[in-house]
Amino acid sequence: MYSTKYIKPNSTSEALEAIKSMGEGKFLAGGMTLIPTLKQRLASPDGLVDISGCDLDSISDEGDAIKIGAMTKHASVAESGLVNKAIPALAKLADGIGDRQVRNRGTLGGSVANNDPSACYPSAVLALKAIVHTNTRSIEADEFFTGMFETALEENEIIEAISFSKPTRANYVKFPNPASRYAMVGVFVAQFNDGVRVAVTGAGEGGVFRHAEMEAALSSNYNADALSALEISSEGLISDLHASPEYRANLIKEMTKRAVA
């Protein structure tokens, strides 16, 4: 990697000051994507602002929602009693990310801010009607993800926490890419009193997305049979070495069936 400056502030306000003091600075969360990118010399920021000391890693029960600090590691979410009780599907998702090393370094905020099209967390954010709390505002999930690796975050905006609404029931099932074990297709299904939300990750050219037809079908009948007659369109789905759009469309339906079974 290119040599760069490294700063580790103690609060988000200090972090903001630090990043403003640099030309092209980058916030460093768990570093699961950024560090390999730097090592391969694919990025050369003027400095890194490590926000792991900014006290952003608490998990709390907010009544209708579970609020998780942005710097909470996947392993902490997976092991959290609060999360396991209120939204076990979210704990299951966190427990299936990467490997043990990744789960003990990677963070919720880092994953969501990066919005990798094959990351697991964005599907939970979208399906669980999450609110993304930043240093300046609160953003609804439906407004947050704007495209592959793109979000509504503005320059120097830090995710501080994310509140996930408690569903009546939910599940996350993924089909991992055989090589990388990222989600080739991951489906998060969440049922609320006002309907079912289905978010699909790993498959869309524009990143994570909600699947309206499946939501409608499952809202009237939360059962795998409700999906049998549905034809899943392959339009807009990713095509790569490992999966064609058609295969991904099949996996979307199959993983959703498994999620509600």
Binding site: P178, A179, S180, Y182, L241, H242
Partner: peptide
């Protein structure tokens, strides 16, 4: 699982464990 795959330009598409499946 394993398959070393060059594209038509001679670029090795499976040049990391992200795509080469061990």
């Amino acid at each position: 699982l394993e398959d070393a795959h060059y594209d038509e330009n001679g670029q090795l598409l499976t040049a990391s464990y992200m795509d080469y499946c061990m």
